[in-house]
Design a protein around this nucleic acid. Structure first.
Ligand SMILES: [Mn+2]
Ligand SMILES: [Mn+2]
Ligand SMILES: [Mn+2]
Ligand SMILES: [Mn+2]
Lengths: 227, 227
DNA sequence: CTAGAGATTTAGGATACACTAAATTTCAGA
DNA sequence: TCTGAAATTTAGTGTATCCTAAATCTCTAG
C-alpha cells in the first residue's frame, strides 16, 4: 500500500501546516513562509521554526529563503487530511443538518480526531461521494485526486448555460447568500446578460432572474458543456 | 444558565484529567494522585504537576498529600465531557456501524473536538437517549445525571429474573464475548442455577442456557423488578 | 512510639509550539 | 553597482505537558 513509514503520530499543528502548504502549492512554485503564516494566522518566525521541524521529519523540502515544497510523504499526509476534511463536511451536511456555511470550522477540528476507520464509514454512508458540499474534490484513500476544469462565472459569455461545479467562497456570509439564491454546486444556470467593464451579470437560476456582481462571479466556478 | 465563567479553552489533557477524577470520585472520598496516574497511564509526578495547575484554575480542590476533589466548575466540565463521550458512543453504534467494543477509543478523541452544537445534533438524531451502549447514563446538558440502582449479576439468587442495565467491562475482549452471548443492556435474563463459593452461574438468555463465571458476573449490572 | 514502605511532591530536564525582537538575505530599482 | 524595503531566519522567551530521580510526608506494623 501507500502506507507511510512508521513514525510518531503527527500533531494537529503538523497536519494543518501540511494541508496549508498543499493548498498554496497549486501553482507548482515553492511556497513562501509569509504565505503560510498568512493562511494559518501565525507569525512568520513561528512558521520558520515549524518548517525546520517538518523538514527534519522528511515531510518538506526547504530551500532557505526560497520556500518549501511537499515531499511525497508530506503530500500524502496533506491529501489524507483533505479527504478527511471534505468527507466530514459532506457527512455533517448530509446527516446532521449542517449547512455549507457552518461545516468548515467543525471539520477543521474533527479532521485531526477521527480514525481512518471512521472516515471510511462516513464515506460509505455517503455513497463514496467525489466532491464535498462546496464542490471541492475528495481525494481517494490512495491519494488520487480529481482535477476538475472549471471556468469562473465571470468569464462566461451572455447566452451560455453552465453547471456550477465549485464555489470558492470561504466565509459564512457569502456562502449563505449564494445558497439562498440557489447558486450551489450542481445548479444549472444561464447567463442572460452581462454588463461590460466588470459590471454585473444577469442570470437565470431555475427560472428566476438573479443579478450577481463581479466579486461573487469570480468565486462561482462552472462546468461548460451541455446546453 | 450553568455557563462557566469565561476562561481559556480547556486542553485535551485538562478535560481527560477532570473526567478521570470524576469517575474516581464516585465514593465521595478525595481522589489520590496515584489512582489518577493509574487511570490515565501517567507518572504520579506528572499528575502532581497537573493538579497544581487545575487547582489554580479553580477546577480542583487540593489537600496536599491527601487528594483532590472537583469544584463545581470542575464537575461541570467533567459532566460535559461525559455527555459528549457517551453520546458519541451511542451515535457511532446507532448510525455508523460501530460495535460497543470499538467505540471507546474513537469517543475518547472525538469528545475533545466536537462542538456543543454537533453534540446536540447527535443527541437529537438519536432521540435524546438516556444511556450509552454500555448502559452508562448520559448527563443532561445542564449537568444532571441519573443514578441507576444496579445489582451485580453475581448477587442475584437462583430463580430470579432481571434486566441487564449496564456492563462495566472496559476491554474489547470481554465486551465482544458478552455481546456474542446476548449479555447486553436491555436483555432479560433469568438465573437458573448457581454454584456456591464463587462458582459459575447458569443463565437463561433468550431461551438459551449460558454459563457465566464470577468475574463476568460481577461486571454485569442488573435491574431487579419485573418477572 | 517509631521505622520503613508507600504515596506524594519537588527538582531538573525534554519536546512541541507559539511569540517578539534582532539579525540576515534577497532583489528590485535608482 | 549599490541600497533599502521586504522576506526570512535566528535568538531568546513562555506555556503546557510529559518524564526520571530525589526529597518529603503519612501511616501502619511491629
Ligand atoms: Mn485542522
Ligand atoms: Mn469544503
Ligand atoms: Mn479523551
Ligand atoms: Mn460507554
Amino acid at each position: 500500500m501507500t502506507a507511510l513509514p512508521a513514525r510518531e503520530p503527527l500533531t494537529r499543528s503538523t497536519e494543518d501546516y501540511l494541508k496549508a502548504i498543499y493548498r498554496l502549492s497549486s501553482g507548482g512554485a515553492p511556497v513562501s513562509t509569509n504565505d503560510i503564516a498568512g493562511l494559518l494566522g501565525l507569525a512568520p518566525a513561528s512558521v520558520s521554526g515549524m518548517i525546520k521541524r517538518l523538514s527534519e521529519q522528511g515531510l518538506l523540502e526547504h530551500m532557505p529563503y526560497r520556500g518549501v515544497s511537499l515531499t511525497p510523504d508530506g503530500r500524502r499526509v496533506a491529501l489524507r487530511m483533505l479527504r478527511r476534511h471534505r468527507l466530514i463536511e459532506a457527512y455533517l451536511v448530509a446527516f446532521l443538518g449542517h449547512t455549507w456555511d457552518t461545516v468548515h470550522d467543525e471539520a477543521e477540528r474533527l479532521e485531526h480526531a477521527v480514525s481512518d476507520d471512521l472516515v471510511e464509514r462516513m464515506a460509505h454512508a455517503l455513497g463514496n461521494p467525489r466532491v464535498d458540499p462546496h464542490g471541492d474534490p475528495i481525494p481517494a484513500p490512495d491519494g488520487t485526486i480529481a482535477e476538475f476544469i472549471h471556468v469562473p462565472l465571470a468569464e462566461i459569455a451572455a447566452g451560455e448555460s453552465v453547471t456550477i461545479g465549485r464555489v470558492d467562497a470561504r466565509d459564512d456570509g457569502r456562502l449563505r447568500y449564494l445558497a439562498q439564491h440557489g447558486l450551489v454546486p450542481g445548479a444549472r444556470i444561464a447567463v442572460v446578460d452581462r454588463e461590460p467593464f466588470g459590471g454585473p451579470l444577469t442570470l437565470d437560476v431555475a427560472g428566476q432572474r438573479k443579478i450577481v456582481g463581479p466579486e461573487l462571479a469570480a468565486l462561482i466556478l462552472c462546468e461548460r458543456g451541455g446546453g
